[in-house]
């Protein structure tokens, strides 16, 4: 049996999702992959719960406490920074799920560096460090012969990087474009189907929990731009960061424009694109109704153009607790298969 020790830093929606999936899929991990994963430390913004003694932490108890906002009442809780726990606790893998900061990349970057310094692989759902410092962090991982995995950062549960890694070997990726943000797709779909204004579609998205109270990241195209940067670096080898993306959001799109496009056989979608010439853009675009990228609601969709397989399409859920955890554990299993 392969014994794998993990640390989870960031114990919100995604971190708790990973904890839940590790519990519900424990048997499959043992039976199908011959692996036993124990979580030896969990951190939130206030501190960490650490147990290096044996079988690892009781994840069910931790999720329950965190749900009740009583994480700090755990008997093994101690005030400690995530990066310090990462460096000092003995483990193999860091699962990093702290909030995305597109400007500074923190606290993610510090957490990644602490992991590499202490010889740990990194799996993340956090776009911030990658949108700001992709090449530096990847370089550091390679230098230490460690893995840096980020399937969950782009389109949540939908496989993108593993699809390319495991299914499109030897293919040269020429261009990539797609719907990378579920919130804006939900809003644009609502505007078309219910013939309502941008403002009222946004309000409904907020009421249903698809959009944040401050929806700027989504509607201004910032979230999609961060994903474009990650795709450009990881799939096309372009050394780009957030400032290299030309970004236009959807706030000016009107119901009349949606209607006019519709009458001529098109829909309007917020599309992130890395073109063949290497330019990076996020903007509202016309997509023919019959095109595979015309997916509805909060779905995400990606078109990958390659020299051998030509156009490949993936459609799936771009967010959600268990969907995102699916991407993280798929990275986890892949690292276990390759490195243990």
């Amino acid at each position: 049996m392969k014994n794998v020790k993990a640390i989870i830093v960031g114990f919100g929606v995604v971190g708790k999702g990973v904890a839940k999936v590790l519990q519900t899929k424990r048997k499959e991990l043992e039976h199908d992959y011959n692996a036993k994963v124990s979580v030896v430390a969990v951190c939130n913004s206030k501190g960490c719960v650490i147990d290096e003694s044996g079988a690892g932490l009781d994840l069910e108890e931790l999720v329950e406490l965190a749900d009740k906002k009583k994480f700090e009442s755990h008997k093994k809780f101690q005030k400690m920074k995530g990066a310090d726990a990462i460096e000092s606790v003995k483990a193999d893998i860091l699962i990093e799920a702290t909030p995305t900061d597109i400007k500074t990349g923190e606290p993610g970057t510090a957490n990644f560096l602490a992991a590499f310094k202490s010889g740990k692989h990194v799996i993340t759902s956090n776009k911030g460090p990658l949108a700001v410092n992709f090449q530096k962090l990847m370089g550091e991982a390679k230098r230490k012969n460690l893995e840096m995995r980020f399937e969950a950062t782009v389109c949540g549960g939908m496989p993108v990087f593993s699809l390319v890694r495991n299914g499109l070997q030897l293919n040269k990726i020429k261009s990539v474009r797609g719907i990378l943000n579920g919130t804006t797709n939900f809003i644009l779909t609502k505007m078309l189907e219910d013939k309502v204004s941008f403002e009222s579609a946004l309000k409904e998205a907020q009421e249903l929990g698809y959009a944040e109270a401050d929806p700027t990241y989504d509607i201004e195209g910032i979230d999609a731009a961060a994903k474009v940067v990650i795709l450009a670096n990881a799939l096309l080898g372009i050394n780009a960061s957030f400032k290299d993306v030309k970004v236009t959001g959807i706030t000016k799109v009107t119901a009349e424009a949606m209607e006019l496009a519709n009458s001529q056989g098109f829909v309007i979608k917020l599309i992130g694109e890395i073109s063949e010439s290497g330019s990076l853009e996020v903007s509202p675009r016309l997509i023919p109704k019959v095109h595979p990228l015309n997916v509805k609601g909060s779905l995400n969709a990606l078109q990958i153009d390659t020299d051998l397989a030509k156009e490949v399409f993936v459609v799936g859920r771009g967010a959600g607790q268990i969907e995102t955890a699916s991407a993280i554990v798929s990275d986890l299993v892949d690292i276990i298969n390759r490195r243990f």
Partner: peptide, 8 residues
């Protein structure tokens, strides 16, 4: 002209 251009 302050127009938003939405292209294919």
């Amino acid at each position: 002209k302050g127009l938003l251009v939405i292209r294919e």
